[in-house]
Simulated scan of single mutants.
Amino acid sequence: MLIGQLARRTGTSERQLRYYERVGLLTSTRQPNGYRTYDATAEQTVARIRALLAAGLPTQLIRQVLPCASADGSLRPCPGVLKNLRTQLTRLDERADELARARETLQRAIAHAETAG
């Protein structure tokens, strides 16, 4: 399938698909005219990539865990990446704490503005 077809089927832009390929998450072959072609598994691979990105994983870590991801983006035990997944979870927890503090600050500012005005 050509890149445009894959983009339509997955709801992903062609630019994003090229990026996935550039960083080693997706592979294609080149036709003599230079067009990229993708095999039948590309749709599932893109779905996994998007699910893992939505889970907050950086592309470098996705490249490590992608072979262990199921179609729904869930992960099976994958040798050598558990430490990296734990590190990423810690980062996400820290980010969630930062967002919670920022949210509280904003709520207080709104409440103060509403009572003052």
Rank of each mutant, 00 (worst) to 15 (best):
L92H: 08
P67E: 11
A69L: 12
T45M: 11
G73V: 07
T45E: 10
A71Q: 13
A100D: 15
A102R: 15
I49A: 04
P58W: 07
L61R: 08
R91I: 01
I49G: 03
H112M: 06
T87W: 06
T87L: 06
I62Y: 05
Q107R: 12
S70Y: 14
V81Q: 00
Q64V: 10
L99R: 02
C78T: 00
A111V: 10
L106V: 06
Q64A: 12
D93V: 01
T59Y: 00
Q107V: 14
L53S: 12
E98A: 09
V81P: 02
A100Y: 07
T90V: 08
E94R: 04
R101P: 06
T90C: 01
E104Y: 04
A54W: 08
D97A: 15
A100M: 14
G56M: 01
G73D: 06
I49F: 06
R86C: 04
E98W: 09
R95P: 04
D93K: 12
A47K: 05
A102Q: 14
V46H: 10
I110S: 03
A109R: 11
C68D: 02
A47M: 06
L66N: 12
R103I: 03
A54Q: 11
L106S: 06
T115G: 09
R101S: 10
A102C: 07
L82R: 05
R76D: 10
N84D: 14
I110W: 11
G80W: 01
E98H: 13
L89I: 09
A113F: 01
I62W: 01
I110P: 03
G80K: 00
R108T: 05
L106W: 11
Q88Y: 02
T87Y: 06
C78M: 00
R48F: 07
Q107H: 13
E98C: 03
R50H: 09
L53T: 15
Q107K: 05
C78V: 00
I62L: 02
L106H: 08
H112E: 13
V65S: 02
Q60A: 09
T87I: 08
P77N: 14
L57W: 02
S74G: 13
P58L: 11
T90F: 07
L89A: 15
A69P: 12
A113T: 04
T45Q: 12
L99I: 13
T90Y: 02
L57T: 11
D93H: 01
V46P: 07
A47G: 08
